[in-house]
Write a protein that binds this DNA or RNA. Structure first.
Length: 239
DNA sequence: AAATGCGACAACCGCGTTCCC
DNA sequence: TGGGAACGCGGTTGTCGCATT
């Protein structure tokens, strides 16, 4: 125990499991002042807990958006895939599983998978599975880009036709087509442009979406997998 | 029924990073 | 720009409940 911790205990700071009253005080504090400034919780609520402890309790247990209950098979698959890719970057993994905390995922991993380390073949399969997913994502993205270009091309063609008909009508002393329609179509295109981007559908997830340059990254990953199996497993430390 | 083992999860600790003065 | 405070992260430990012996 360090000097600060022992000093805090001497001054009556609590440690260990949280009581219902402490939870209520902390929840009320966050409702009133928002998240952050954890060190001021004790001053403002009378709670005898360190800011660090308060933050942890809120983030891992009291936050209203937390998902309760068991990890689902789908979530387990995501955890396995991301861990195969990212290693023990629990917070990064947690960001891709809304409602789950890094602590929860870390505990789950250690309980379920730490001892039974997946075989090298299994890990290769997981990586391969993820790679296929990314390829499919990229294919869909390129397809949507292609469709968008087609759409824009059609719009240009339409505009050209409209211009030509307009010129024709002007030459014939007639009124031009309604500009509202044209504006509406253009608005649709620009709207599609914003909504159609795959990147916008995964804002909460900070995983990199592979691009052409990611071949290098994957090369490195495969090398890691290959290199991993040559030793006795003692290099990892985690397992 | 008591002792023991073990899984699950909450909480703590140390350290690195970021922020602010 | 340097230093301290605050924050965030990953590793570790503690505790509880259930199953097994």
């Amino acid at each position: 125990m360090d000097a600060i911790s022992s000093l805090m205990l001497q001054e009556g700071w609590r440690k260990g499991p949280w009581t219902a009253l402490e939870d209520r005080l902390l929840t009320e504090y966050v409702q009133q002042y928002g998240e952050g400034s954890w060190n001021s919780v004790a001053k403002l609520t009378g709670l005898r807990r360190s800011g660090k402890s308060c933050r942890l309790r809120w983030v891992n247990y009291l936050r209203p958006d937390l998902k309760r209950g068991k990890i689902t098979p789908d979530e387990e698959t995501v955890i396995l895939q991301l861990h195969a890719m990212l290693g023990n970057r629990w917070s990064a993994i947690a960001r891709c599983l809304p409602g789950r905390t890094d602590n929860e995922i870390k505990n789950y991993w250690r309980t379920h998978f730490k001892k039974a380390r997946p075989s090298r073949r299994a890990r290769e399969q997981l990586l391969h599975q993820y790679q296929l997913q990314q390829q499919e994502q990229r294919r869909q993205y390129l397809q949507s880009l292609h469709l968008l270009h087609q759409h824009q091309h059609q719009q240009q063609h339409l505009q050209l036709l409209q211009q030509q008909s307009q010129q024709l009508m002007m030459s014939q002393q007639q009124s031009p087509p309604e500009p509202d329609h044209q504006a509406a179509v253009m608005a649709m295109v620009s709207n599609d442009d914003q909504q159609g981007s795959p990147a916008s559908t995964a804002e909460h997830c900070t995983l990199p979406v592979p691009d052409d340059d990611d071949a290098l990254l994957w090369d490195s990953l495969w090398k890691l997998v290959d290199g991993d199996g040559c030793g006795d497993g003692s290099s990892g430390g985690e397992y």
